[in-house]
Simulated scan of single mutants.
Amino acid sequence: MNIQKNNKTVIITINMVISFFSETFVGMALGFFLGRYFDNLLFDGERMIFAYVLLFLGLFAGLINFIKRVLKNIAKEEKNEKS
């Protein structure tokens, strides 16, 4: 029983890590290219203000999603241990 629980925990952890990296990468890539588009529209490609701002916004969005998912998983595990 304990081995199955450990395997399930490992699988959930790997799933969360893979989801974190994929969501963060996609958010950063979309932010960068969308920012470059806005920079080219407004500044004729001379500055990269929006590219960096939206890149970091994508990074922080991925981190916030990861933290929420970890906290939710911890709360679910604590609930399962009590019952």
Rank of each mutant, 00 (worst) to 15 (best):
N65E: 10
K79C: 01
I67N: 05
N73I: 03
G58E: 01
S83I: 10
L71A: 10
K79H: 09
Y37V: 09
M1A: 13
V53G: 02
L71P: 00
R47V: 11
M1V: 09
I49Y: 11
M48I: 06
G27T: 01
K68Y: 09
S22L: 14
I3P: 00
F60M: 12
I67R: 06
I14Y: 06
L54F: 13
F56D: 00
N2T: 07
R47F: 11
K79A: 15
F21I: 10
E77G: 09
F20W: 05
I12G: 07
T13V: 07
F20N: 00
M16Q: 07
L41P: 01
S83E: 13
I18K: 08
F33C: 06
D44N: 15
V10F: 10
L55C: 07
F38K: 05
I67G: 01
D39H: 02
D44F: 10
I14P: 00
T24Y: 02
L42E: 08
F60D: 04
I74N: 11
L63E: 03
E81L: 15
R47E: 12
K82A: 14
I64C: 03
F20V: 01
G45S: 05
L41C: 07
F21V: 11
K5F: 06
I12R: 15
Y37Q: 10
R69G: 02
G62S: 00
I64S: 04
S22P: 00
N15A: 15
F21S: 09
K68N: 13
A61K: 07
R47C: 04
F43V: 05
F33T: 11
E46K: 14
L57V: 08
F20P: 02
G58C: 00
F60W: 08
I49T: 12
